[in-house]
Nucleic acid binder design. Structure first.
Length: 621
RNA sequence: GGUUCCGUAGCUCAGUUGGAUAGAGCAACAGCCUUCUAAGCUGUGGGUCGAGCGUUCGAACCGCUCCGGAAUCACCA
């Protein structure tokens, strides 16, 4: 049952019985704030023009009507214009039974919509860094969240494997590499190629210096540096499919992909489709022709094609070079078009940094002007903020880039040290210690990044390692591990765990493992006899039942941070409960059973929520 | 200059379509392990929600104007 719907319908009926038909926006219902008694609150101000009474009188009138007519409403109180309604314990018991019995809790029914989400999109000339980590984690998590919202999700990666930057690495390797390979150097492929990209830049700068010393202007020197001219020559050869250049390109890209695969695997992200720009960069030209025909685009004297967007507050934008070759926009128009057609997409999401906001604004506008508004409207640029260091932006030239592989390794090492220090690794095999350190280190990193609203610029200070206490991934993982530990102990002690709502199958007659009462009856009985459902337990049930709403909201807003906040709140709340109430030592078997089940459901939802963030949770830590 | 975005505690961040006395974590200080894992729990201090107008019964949230910061406005991708 959807609780919010239930409440708002009940309130609507009460209000309409008292004041006649209402408009939609006149009913404002929200969760009651912690500091007041009650579960849900009606804000009466919008109703006053109907009731023609004071806020207090209106609230009291509706509250009285509801306690008299709605069995689930136990009591109410009025504070200023706010009507706080308290639901009966058995109501929450029934909700809990529903949650426990729902094997796919948090997973929405299929919507039939197909959504493609493109993320990662690396260049093949250097290894991944912290910025890519944010991109990958966001992309993967949003994909998980959309799947949980019932969509068919296609995870796509568009690899930028061509262009002058690739040639720079290739050329530097050819000139200075002495045949070095990942195998010969023991270096990860992407790092090796990245090394030569840096090497290129070093020589390039030296040559510029030399040329300016000879009297050339800086601009001339940049153009005339021999190494740059050679790189451009190499690009031309590549485009002409020169066998030697092409083969080198394939080899070096192969190294990079091997390296990326390792990083992706470490991050726990994957893709359903990988596109290579070398195969798509010629797309989009037919769309340009179409635009010219429709008079949306125009051709300049030098034969280049443009669109004038000044009427929309933007600028004039180039769509095709004078020599007929594509630019970024041409390609993106083409790939967008092809993807919608090939995959029958309902939505297309690009996880790309906010530095490209303008590009996507233009992309959508151009598609719209071409008459593809139905697609344009279903393109979302999931624009995320940069990750900054205390001294500002990461700059590869200044060596302030935080390398993805290094960071991951550091996090795992820190996790291991911390675990050892706390004595958590005693009695563990080496494999277990590895597995837990990896889980916790990555959990800390991922949560740290995903808990921040995607669109905000975020700060990362490499000098202070990421926290493991407080609002962190390990805190949530730890809560899960503690619950699992309790459940293990219960099983070992042979405590009755065969709870009817612990399982997905309906109770079978003759299945002796199950008690005779149903879950709901069990809870209700307990609630009636006052043995179960302490206020803290009701609070936990309330929070548990909000999980689907959190999943929905995270999906609507493409915001893993909403899941993060939810799971943290749940874990925190459970920790307080755990501290105050013993589960295994509870003597009343019925109460103990419910507490075990409550703990089990909290663990389940934590696991499920963390899965949406791409974070694993350990059985012990 | 145009466009887009951001500004909340010393620091890092929440704050769901406008609601009650603005919340967490870190850092600081004070407590809690003979008791299901102390990576935990409890308490204390800490705020002109960048500023000012306006809309409203009610604004951190909506509108306008400033101030401060970021990105972008390439025949790069």
């Amino acid at each position: 049952m959807n609780i919010e719907t239930f409440i708002s319908e009940a309130v609507r009926q009460a209000a309409e019985a008292l004041y006649g038909p209402l408009e939609g926006e006149e009913l404002q219902i929200q969760k009651t704030r912690k500091e007041f008694e009650g579960d849900y609150t009606l804000v009466t101000f919008p109703l006053l023009r109907r009731s023609r009474k004071s806020p207090e009188a209106t609230a009291t009138e509706i509250g009285t009507y509801m306690t008299d007519n709605v069995p689930e409403i136990k009591s109410f109180n009025v504070i200023k214009g706010f009507l706080n309604l308290s639901l009966d314990g058995s109501f929450w018991a029934a909700r809990f039974a529903e949650v426990a019995a729902d094997a796919s809790f948090g997973q929405a029914a299929p919507t039939g919509r197909t959504v493609m989400i493109e993320y990662s999109s690396p260049n093949t000339n250097k290894p991944l860094h912290l910025g890519h980590i944010r991109n990958n984690l966001l992309g993967y998590s949003v994909a998980q969240i959309l799947a949980a919202n019932g969509h068919n999700v296609i995870k796509a990666n568009l690899v930028n494997d061509r262009g002058i930057h690739i040639c720079k690495s290739m050329l530097a390797w050819k000139l200075y590499g002495n045949g070095e390979t990942p195998a010969s150097s023991g270096m990860k492929g992407d790092h090796l190629v990245g090394k030569y990209y840096v090497e290129f830049d070093k020589h390039y700068k030296a040559q510029i210096k030399e040329l300016t010393a000879q009297g050339q202007s800086e601009e001339e020197a940049k153009k005339n540096a021999p190494i740059m001219l050679q790189a451009q020559e190499m690009l031309r050869k590549w485009e002409a499919k020169d066998p030697e250049v092409y083969s080198l390109w394939e080899t070096m890209n192969g190294w990079v992909y091997e390296g990326f695969d390792v990083t992706y695997k470490a991050l726990g992200v994957d893709f359903d489709k990988v596109y290579y720009e070398s195969q798509t960069y010629l797309l989009g030209k037919s769309l340009v022709e179409e635009g010219l025909k429709k008079g949306v685009f125009y051709r300049r004297d030098d034969n280049s094609v443009w669109i004038d967007l000044t009427g929309d507050g933007l600028d004039e934008k180039l769509l095709l070079r004078g020599d007929g070759t594509s630019v970024y926009m041409t390609q993106d128009l083409g790939t967008a078009f092809r993807r919608f057609e090939d995959n029958k997409l309902d939505d297309m999401i690009y996880v790309v940094g906010n530095e490209q906001n303008y590009h996507f604004q233009v992309l959508k506008l151009v598609l719209k002007k071409l008459g593809y508004a139905d697609w344009s409207d279903h393109i979302t640029h999931l624009s995320y903020g940069m990750v900054e260091l205390p001294e500002g932006k990461m700059k590869s030239r200044e060596g302030t880039v935080v390398d993805a592989d290094d960071l991951i390794a550091d996090m795992v090492t820190t996790a291991r040290e911390m675990s050892a220090e706390l004595g958590k690794l005693e009695g563990c095999t080496a494999e277990e210690a590895d597995a837990v350190s990896t889980m916790v280190g990555l959990g800390a990193l991922k949560y740290f990044i995903l808990k921040v609203d995607p669109k905000k610029t975020m700060l990362f200070d490499p000098r202070e390692s990421i926290d493991f206490n407080g609002n962190t991934g390990p805190f949530i993982q730890y809560t899960h591990a503690r619950i699992r530990s309790v459940l293990r102990k219960a099983a070992e002690a042979g405590i009755d765990m065969a709870l009817p709502f612990a399982t997905t199958e309906p109770a079978q007659p003759g299945n002796s493992a199950r008690p005779e009462r149903s879950a709901t009856e069990d809870c209700q009985h307990a609630a009636e006899t006052g043995q179960l459902l302490l206020p803290e337990e009701i609070d936990l049930i309330k929070t548990l039942s909000e999980y689907p709403a959190a999943v929905r909201s995270a999906g609507d807003n493409f915001a893993p941070s909403i899941i993060g906040a939810y799971v943290y709140e749940l874990a925190k709340q459970f920790n307080g409960y755990y501290h105050d109430h013993s589960i295994l030592k509870e003597e009343n078997a019925e109460v103990r059973r419910l507490r075990l089940q409550l703990a089990a459901q909290v663990a389940r939802v934590i696991r499920s929520g963390m899965e949406l963030l791409g974070i694993e949770v350990p059985e012990r830590m």
